[in-house]
Every structure is written in C-alpha cells, then in structure tokens.
Design a protein around this nucleic acid. Structure first.
Lengths: 408, 408
DNA sequence: TATTTATTCGGTCTATTGACGAATTAATTT
DNA sequence: AAATTAATTCGTCAATAGACCGAATAAATA
C-alpha cells in the first residue's frame, strides 16, 4: 500500500500549472493515454511524461490497461488513483446525520446516515467521528487517507473564523470549537459551511443546477433560507449571514415583536408559522406541515388556503431575489419547498408578479443535497491544496486611493 | 515622443507574472529603485533589470531622479510613465454628461461635463466623442493614446453582449450598437456598465467604501436602484438586471398594474411616486422632490410625512438587502439618497427593523461617483490587458457530474 | 508499410546565484 | 583640512538550473 501522497514538493509556478491542467484532463477524460493528454492540454509529450511520472510516484495516478484496435503502437492508459486521497462530506441536521465518502476523482464511494444524537453538542461530534470512521473502514480506506472534510450545518457560519455563530436547531453546538475538535478527532482539516449553501452547491455539482452561473436556492422546511450563487461564486456575506431571508420585510408588519425576533417572513412561512395560521383560521389539530398538505389534498379548504398563502409569500420572496440578484434559475428545496405541487403554486404566483419570470425547479437531490454539496467543497479544497496557484488568483489591484489627482 | 506601447509581445507565463508583480509594485510605491523593486517583489536583481528595461522600451516606466543621502551608490528611481496609456471614464446621464481622463497609474488628469444633448441617441454619442477628444487634446494626450473606455449609463446592460437593453431615460439609446459606434468614433475598446454599479465601484475605489469586500450601494434619485459588491466582485446577474430593486414587492400591492409595470417599490419612492404621494396627501403644487424636501425643512407637515414614509420604505429595502446579502456597509447615493438628513432617517428606521443593523454612509463622491467608477473599471481593464493572466484565473473545475457513483 | 506511441537529444527561455565594478558615505589617517 | 581607506549599496556579467518545445529515433502494431 502506498503512503499517502506527500505534500507536493515546491515546484515552480509553471510546473504547477502544467500539473494542474494535466490533473484536470485526467479528471474529465478518465482513462486516457499520455499522447492524448498531451493533445488535450497542449503540452508537449515530454512534459507530459514527466508530469505523469511524478503523479505516479505520488500515487495520484495509476495505469488501467492499454489501448487496442487502433493502428500503431498501443498506449498505456491512466486514471486518477483512489490512493490519491479521499474526502468526507457531512450533513449534520437537527434530525439526521449523513456522511459520504468520495475519492479524489469525485467518485462517491459510500454514504451512510443515522438519526442525530439528540443530546447535541459534543455527543453529535462523537457520533460524526464514529460514523466517519466506520464508513472509511468499510470501504478499505484508512481514515488517515482522508484529506479534506466539510461539514454542513444549519446556522450562520462565520466566513473568516469558520465558527458556528447561530445554530438554533442543534443544542450546544455554538459554544464548541467544532473545527478544532472535529479536526482532531478525524485527523484532517475540517471546514464548516451553512447547510443551505452546501445544498445549493450540491445541486450545482450533481443536481438540477448544473452549468448555471447565477442560481438561487430557496429552502423551505422548518425554517426558510436562501443560498446565492452569483458569478460562479457562493455569496456568504460579511458575517456569513447572507441568505437569512427569514428576516425579509415581507408578509407582515416588520416592526412587530415576533417579526424582529424570529424574522418577519419566517414568522409566517416557517413551520410554526404555517401551523399557527392553520390553527388561527379554524383548522383542526395538526402536528406538522406535512399534515396540512395532506389535509389540503383530501379537500380541506382551510388547509388549501393556508398553503396558497404560503406559496404567495414564497413567491414574493422569490420576486425579491429576482429583483436583487437576477438569477437564471431558482431551485426550491427543503421538505416543503421540494414538493412539486408547491413549486407549481409558487411559479404561478411568480408569473403574476415578476416582469420577467425566472425558471423554477425543484431540488433533485432532496435531502442528499447538503451532503453532496459538502463533498463538492471538500473535493475542490483538496484539489486546490494540490494544484492551487494561490498567488495568481488575486486580481490586479487598482492603484492606491491616496493618489493625488490633478484636479478634484 | 515615444510611440504608444505596442501590444506586449507574447511572453511566457512566468515572465508575465514577473512583469505583473513589478507593475503592481510600481503602482503602489511610486518612485522606487530597481533594488527596492527586487526586494518588494522577491525577484532577483537581474530579473528586475530585465523587466524594468523592457518596460522602459515599451514606454511604461520612466526615470524620475536618483536617491541621495543614503550610504552607498545612488539608485535610479522609476515611476509609471503617463505615456504608458490613458483611460477614459464617461458618465452618460439623462441630464448630464461627464467625462474623465486618467493615466495608467490612475492619476486623474482632467474631468469635464456638459448637459446631455437632449436629442439623445446618436447625438449623445457624437457629443461624447467631441468632449472626449477635447479633453484629450487639452491635456497633451493624443486621443489614440487612450486604450480603454468605460461608459456608465442608466438601464440594464447585458453582461454577455454588452448591449444596453433598457435605457428608459435616454431616448433612442437602446437601438444603437453603442459599443461598436463609440469604439469606432474614439478608436479604442468601449465597455458599457450600469451607472449605479459604476458609482458603487467609484465609492469603493476612491470614495467611502474603500477596503470593504461586501457593500451595497442604494441609489435614490429619479428612480431607485442598487449596486451589489460581494466577495470583492460586482454582482451583475444573469441578464445584468441585478439590483433592479424598483421591483421589490415592498410598499404596496405587487399585483397592482402600476406595480407590475414600473415596479412596486419604484412606484412609491421614485420621483413621480413621491410627488404623487405628496399631491394625494393634499400638498401644494411642486415640481421636484427637492422642493418637497425644502417644504419639509420650512415646516410643511405633509412634506415631512411624505419624506418620512419614503425613508421608511428605503429602510425596508435596505433591510431586504441586509437579509439577502449581508453587506458590511450600505452606501446611500443619488440626488435624494445622498442627503445626510435623509440617510439619518433611513438609519433610524433600519435600527428598528434589523436584528443587526449595518453601517450606513452617504456617498462621498456624489455625482462624480459614476465617472470615477468608470475610470476604475477602464483602468483595471487596461491593467488586465497588459498583465492579465487569463488562463490562470479559471478555478479548478470539479469533476463532471456524469460520473457514476458507487451507490446512489 | 504506414501509423501511432514513447523516449532521447539538443535548443530556448526564464530566473537565480555569486562575483564584480561603480558610486557613494563614513571613518580614519596624515 | 585633505586624503586615504573601509563599508555599503546599486547594477551588470557569467554560469547554472528548471521547464518547455521540436526533431529525431526507436518500438509496437494494424
């Protein structure tokens, strides 16, 4: 068994670029010969051989056979080796914990889930460690091979510190240094990101929002939240609180106490809000929003009315998103939002509202979206660690504002 | 007089990087010796000399004296030469046309403005060409030295084609190929961008939003508009229509005919909306929003009430922006928005609304913001043309979603 | 035999290193 | 005070290493 690949030794910028484009080509045209790699990347065959040899020694690529049938000498085919590294995606929800394992090529090797330990906090972290460990061992991967871990969690994640600042649904998570603790338990760097943001990235990677540069993900479940992707980038906001659209001043008096505390929109369309509205409208006793939908389907007019109103408010929120960031697509997700019937209602509302309506789709990954998005981020972090060209990414900064102007 | 620098001959990626960092150092530490450049950039003295010599031959840098007083041999000091290239920023407003000229180092050389030719369309373009030409010649710069031009205009600018798709305030501009016509008249590449977006960039470059990665610019004048800057990038949206917050479903019934057409929020807080509300509330005859403000200042209670309501709605819009993109700062601009008294009112409203209020500032550049922003974009486009590392900027894409998963 | 793959061998470009001369200030001697 | 020497810094030269490409060559196969 090869050792885990050592941190790539310092190579010059240009070699790093070559390595990077070769890796990319390997990623996309999996079994491929060196000659073809040279054609695809535009590098010379010699450079190609050097890079592939280096990758081979690092354990990043492996041979997978030879070409045959073509005129001429046969070529050795290469692909990315699973030995190159593994990544872990974790979705820590209030109810359910999901963990997924993938190799460096993005092949999902395994996925597992359990009910979240209701004691929360440190217990949940232990549970994550246990489940991750099991997943790795069951797939013939030593946990030490895992190089990058991303955790999806509800709440606001500070983009600078990586700390969880508001985790309303999981008790005692806000007070823990999750990055540190989990990183220690699992033995590799952990990054935390908001679950809705990751669900959005999941849909972009493997779901219904592929190849779209401007998408919004509107999640409606027990609460409401938004993920924004513009210019091919996730919008986190200064404090990681972008997308907290529960606080949109829509659907009620924003100065009301309940609105200020819980958020004006969330007060209406959050699960408790929907139930409250149903109750206040004279509906019979129910325990979950799902039940309200069931009632509506069997002809309860009050339930239908409550749902219609919910769709109207979500339509307004979608219109606000459209007015503000002009997405190409809005994905509806979450336990309520992902219902096709509900999405239809929202789309109808939007049609009446917006001068140029935007396509609406329902999440195709459903509750897997978060964990898939976590994998995608873990993966791209791993790739960046290997092949990132950090200093190049920076845009050419403009001259300093302190400059004296000729006339002002 | 040296010839305008030729398009930089194809150099290798690594040399291009060196050139780039040397240029950057020159930009920021204006008069600097080669030895210091070497220290700052980390390049060797030898490479330094090669690059500086090349720059000198291109006319990009020039000598500006020698050091003295220090121990050791004196050093020749260099700075960016104005011969290196000039850029033009143009703000084509409905009322006023402003043009500014800067050199490659970002030094603003001159600025001029005139009332916009009211016949609009082709006449306005002619006017731009005339004014630009005069500005260049008055500053001993042949128009052919201008290498990059950015035009600020109201309306939606398609980010892909660069065409103006909705220019409500300037007649006949939407039907013209402005990029082509103006580029031909002025002899260098023209880029068009929405005026509010450019005002935002202006405030970020030289105004009140320096060194902030997440800002929103809320412009309130005859209409209302928003500029968004997140992760250090401008948010344009899929069709360039990001920030069209006149259509936010705030301040009225969004299903009303007037709301659908003009935008729900704009119907209330746009200039005509403010005047209508003042009239409907029984106010005496006025012609402009400014007059309403004047009335309020001399004690007209109806005017004060109308303005208070306007501030309330802008506060709601700001709250929506905060909920959605979590900026660090909101800049108020436009003829109405830039009034400090009005901004104070908005800030007060926001304090009551938002769980974590965001700092609010008024534009410091005022009506110059657009043209300054245009300059900043023209400048960074010029820099990119010289020193951009286009192919490197692309992020490492994730593996294709078509990959088969082990379990799904 | 024609074709394709892979390797080897120069040649070019870029950047670094160390040595060196040139220019200037500081210190010391006459 | 003037002259000489030392120290320091700037910029160039020459040699070298890393990386890339193109051409030539060997190998393998329809």
């Amino acid at each position: 068994m090869t050792m885990p690949a050592p941190p790539p030794p310092v190579t010059s910028v240009t070699r790093q670029l070559s390595r990077r484009s070769v890796f990319e080509a390997l990623l996309h045209r999996s079994p491929i010969s060196r000659a073809d790699l040279a054609k695809v990347t535009g590098l010379s065959k010699q450079t190609m051989s050097e890079v592939v040899d280096a990758f081979g020694q690092q354990g990043l690529v492996r041979q997978v056979g030879r070409t045959s049938g073509n005129v001429g000498r046969t070529a050795v085919l290469y692909e990315l080796s699973p030995e190159g590294g593994h990544v872990l995606g974790i979705d820590l929800g209030a109810r359910r914990l999901t963990v997924a394992l993938a190799d460096i090529a993005g092949r999902v090797l395994a996925e597992a889930d359990e009910p979240t330990d209701s004691r929360g906090g440190a217990w949940a972290l232990d549970q994550i460690a246990r489940l991750s460990d099991r997943l790795a061992r069951d797939n013939h991967t030593h946990p030490s091979r895992i190089r990058s871990i991303v955790l999806a969690t509800p709440g606001v994640v500070n983009p600078k510190s990586g700390a969880i600042e508001m985790a309303p649904n999981i008790t005692g998570l806000g007070h823990l240094n999750v990055v540190g603790l989990l990183g220690e338990k699992l033995g590799s760097p952990v990054v935390i990101e908001n679950d809705i943001n990751l669900a959005l990235l999941g849909e972009i990677w493997h779901g219904c929002a592929q190849n779209v540069a401007n998408v919004a993900f509107l999640a409606l479940g027990s609460g409401i939240g938004l993920g924004l992707f513009t210019n091919g980038q996730l919008v986190r906001g200064e404090n990681g609180a972008a997308g907290e659209i529960g606080y949109l001043p829509i659907g009620g008096d924003p100065l009301q106490a309940a609105s200020r505390l819980q958020g004006c929109l969330e007060y209406q369309v959050g699960a408790t809000g929907v139930l409250r509205r149903y109750r206040e409208a004279g509906g019979s006793e129910v325990e979950s929003v799902m039940q309200v939908f069931e009632r509506a389907q069997v002809g309860d007019p009050i339930a239908a009315q409550v749902i219609e109103e919910t769709a109207r408010l979500i339509g307004l929120a979608a219109a606000a998103v459209i007015a503000m960031v002009d997405p190409q697509l809005i994905v509806l997700g979450g336990s309520v939002g992902a219902r096709p019937d509900f999405a239809d209602q929202v789309a109808r509302v939007l049609l009446q509202l917006s001068p140029r309506p935007v396509e609406i789709r329902t999440s195709t990954l459903g509750r897997r979206a978060g964990v898939v998005g976590a994998l995608s981020v873990a993966l791209s972090r791993l790739h960046d660690a290997f092949f990132g060209v950090a200093e190049l990414a920076a845009a050419l900064p403009l001259p300093p504002p302190a400059h004296r102007s000729a006339r002002q």
